[in-house]
């Protein structure tokens, strides 16, 4: 166990930034999101949840794949380079780190996504234990411990110090490069902090949410339920829930016309959108009810069916906080538990 005085954090960030790219939670107006570190950036480690999840660091909202350039009939194609520089994402929470495990299942299984794989290889995650879990958090329902982020390094914010505990090879190597700034510490403060977090986590309003009946085998039963008809109606078909979610993984690939060529890029897509997976024959989900159902069926039924029972919701509660009309996965789970209105 190591520690560093919080007053000295900018030195730590600067040191990391000397050799690596660094992403930290940055406040812009009232919102906090992960962004590249700079001396001017207002780093905010107190915000529990960033608006967007930090999945951007591994799977950016939009990224170029290759560029085609047409010069007097000669077309050249330049593929985008893969990430080859190490980078650190500082301050990810336990739920968001589990979210990356979910993305791994998608992007690291055959055929491996080389863009994502390169970022995973070069990315080092410093996880921050959750100082004050909030009412919308329900990570524990998915077996996630907010006091033990499964990162390369777990850090704990306790009064004047940040405690630093390397957990993996990558974490040890990073610690090594920072040895001038980190001092040895004993475990007491961290053990107390963990107890504090666990005690709050038990009292969270959604701590006892039951996932009974949600599994890979529930396909027909859940799919055919009339409850979806009741639930979807207020949905705006926006992408707030999907774009803030740490596990939503769908993307679209499109061409951007640059005038003398194209940039082929991919960007996050949302199953809530009417043009999602649009094909020549039209869209395979023709109503908003079907699109709404897809999001939750994917998280709670299809994903576990294909991934040994692993859910693709990590209980971060972002969709709970951010849905403009107050719909969310918790309400869906509760509605099914109640068996709908009738």
């Amino acid at each position: 166990m190591k520690k560093i005085a919080k007053s000295n954090l900018s030195a730590l960030f600067a040191k990391i930034n000397e050799t690596k790219d660094l992403y930290v939670p940055v406040k812009n107006g009232e919102q906090v999101n992960f962004a590249a570190y700079s001396e001017e950036a207002e780093v905010d480690l107190t915000a529990l949840k960033t608006v967007k999840s930090p999945k951007d660091a591994f799977f950016p909202q939009s990224e170029n794949l290759y560029t085609c350039f047409n010069e007097q009939g000669k077309i050249s194609i330049t593929p985008e380079e893969l990430q080859d520089k190490d980078f650190v994402v500082f301050g990810m929470k336990a739920c968001d780190i589990k979210g990356i495990e979910v993305l791994d299942k998608v992007f690291l299984s055959e055929p491996v996504d080389s863009f994502y794989a390169a970022r995973r290889q070069h990315g080092i995650i410093v996880g921050l234990a959750c100082d004050k879990p909030e009412e919308s958090c329900f990570c524990t329902v998915f077996g996630i411990n907010p006091a033990e982020p499964t990162a390369d390094v777990a850090v704990y914010d306790d009064e004047d110090f940040l405690y630093w505990n390397a957990l993996t090879e990558k974490g040890n190597a990073l610690t090594e490069t920072l040895c001038d700034l980190l001092e040895d510490a004993d475990n007491t403060a961290v053990e107390n902090k963990k107890k504090e977090i666990t005690a709050i986590a038990e009292k969270l309003p959604y701590a006892n949410l039951s996932l009974e009946g949600w599994n890979g085998d529930a396909l027909t039963e859940k799919f055919d339920s009339p409850i979806w008809e009741e639930l979807y109606k207020p949905c705006l078909a926006c992408g707030t829930c999907t774009f803030s979610c740490p596990t939503c993984q769908c993307y679209d690939i499109k061409d951007y016309n640059t005038g003398n060529g194209i940039k082929r890029y991919r960007c996050w897509d949302s199953c809530m959108y009417s043009d999602f997976t649009m094909m020549a024959h039209g869209n395979n989900r023709t109503s908003q009810m079907q699109r709404f159902r897809q999001r939750f069926m994917h998280k709670l039924v299809y994903f576990p069916a294909n991934n040994d029972g692993m859910y693709s919701c990590v209980g971060c509660g972002r969709c709970v906080d951010k849905c403009p009309q107050n719909l969310n996965i918790v309400k869906v789970i509760k509605a099914f538990e109640k068996g709908g209105k009738a």
Binding site: G29, V51, Q61, L236, C238, G239, T240, F243, S244, Y273
Partner: peptide, 16 residues
């Protein structure tokens, strides 16, 4: 620029 660069193009503003 500062405000709009925060936009995540979720379309909530348009859809509501």
């Amino acid at each position: 620029q500062k405000e709009l660069s925060k936009c995540i193009r979720c379309n909530a503003c348009r859809n509501v």
